[in-house]
């Protein structure tokens, strides 16, 4: 960037709207110099590449809640939505690795979106250092209760006559759904929606027969009996839905899930990374954070940064291979 490194100085750590409205006392406003040795000396910005209110944003905010206790500084969450998080991720990757600019990564950005966008748009793990993994959000295929479908076999029986919703191009939802249908030999019309919620609504209204969405989204409908869970796309069963078989159990090796991790620009000093890792581990151990995971049906996946990078790169390769094997068309430029 420019000579003015100060333009990137972390924000005054004011809870939004607080000071001007006089509702809350302003806490932790610091204006100290960057890199004074005692990291962290000022608020740490956590950038989220999704809209406020989405599940990624909620996770970021749940983490940020514990920051004051864990780091002694606050952690303002900034939303910079766009291109499934690619814009925010690239912006953070270009910052100084001084530990004051972090981002919350979605695994599908690396593993799935990369399959449908041209190379110059794809985000590479090389530009980032992953601090630690956070949690896993499973995908589940649900059917309209009126269809009477109870399992993948029931859907198979109606092959050719099925319409199915996905959460959109390049999402884990689409990938999981397409892989399953391809391997099970089910034919149907794909109807992409903007995100999981409208796809689920279409299932409830009978506009489509089945859809694959995230567990947290589907849970209220499953509990109410308006949507029937058919199969879950993860290595192991979800603890909140012990009765729902995994795709692997059904004979389809399709471990697709949304993982999330905290990352920072590459080549950060080791001591900064250690401080961050310890801090996040501390937050992850709090009751509040664990309760949050539980309420949102997230499975903790608190693994080290190296493991995350290995896991995600492995997934990206596997998905690419599976897509090619099955001759799938996820869309995208001349894909």
């Amino acid at each position: 960037m420019s000579w003015c490194s100060c333009s990137r100085r972390p924000l005054a750590a004011v809870v939004a709207g607080g000071l001007s409205l006089g509702l809350v006392a302003c806490g932790g406003v610091t204006d100290g110099a960057v890199g004074g040795g005692d990291y962290p000396a000022e608020p740490i910005t956590l950038t989220v590449g999704q809209e406020p209110g989405g599940s990624t944003d909620l996770i970021a905010r749940a983490l940020a809640e514990g920051a004051q206790d864990a780091f002694g500084v606050s952690m303002p969450v900034e939303n910079q939505p766009g291109a499934n998080g690619a814009i925010a991720t690239q912006q953070v990757a270009n910052q100084n690795p001084d530990g004051y600019e972090l981002t919350l990564l979605n695994s599908t950005l690396i593993t799935t979106t990369a399959q449908v966008v041209p190379e110059e748009e794809a985000v590479s793990m090389d530009d980032l250092d992953v601090i630690m993994g956070l949690s896993r959000d499973d995908y589940i295929m649900v059917a309209n209760a009126d269809t009477g479908y109870e399992s993948v076999e029931d859907v198979e029986a109606d092959s050719g006559d099925i319409s199915y919703g996905t959460a959109g191009i390049g999402t884990g939802s689409q990938l999981a759904q397409l892989l399953l249908f391809e391997e099970a030999g089910i034919e149907g019309n794909e109807v992409p929606f903007d995100s999981g919620a409208p796809a689920l609504t279409a299932v409830m209204g009978g506009q489509v027969d089945v859809a694959t969405v995230q567990v947290g989204e589907a849970m209220p409908q499953i509990e109410a009996g308006t949507a029937t869970p058919l199969v879950i796309f993860s290595d192991e069963r979800n603890e909140h839905l012990e009765d729902v078989p995994t795709a692997v159990e059904e004979g389809y090796d399709i471990p697709v899930a949304q993982y999330r991790a905290v990352a920072m620009p590459a080549d950060a000093p080791e001591d900064v990374k250690d401080t961050l890792r310890e801090g996040f581990e501390e937050i992850a151990a709090t009751e509040d954070y664990q309760g949050f995971n539980d309420e949102n049906y997230l499975t903790p996946e608190e693994i080290s940064g190296e493991e995350v990078e290995e896991q995600w790169t492995g997934m990206a390769d596997e998905y690419a291979q599976r897509i090619e094997e099955n001759g799938l068309d996820l869309g995208g430029e001349d894909a």
Binding site: G82, A86, I87, E121, G168, I169, P192, G331, G332, E333
Partner: peptide
Amino acid sequence: GRDAFTGELRYTAGNLELTD
């Protein structure tokens, strides 16, 4: 922006900011 159905970029002239 990106077409929600095919994933193709439309009228973005290669500008990443226009993807959405």
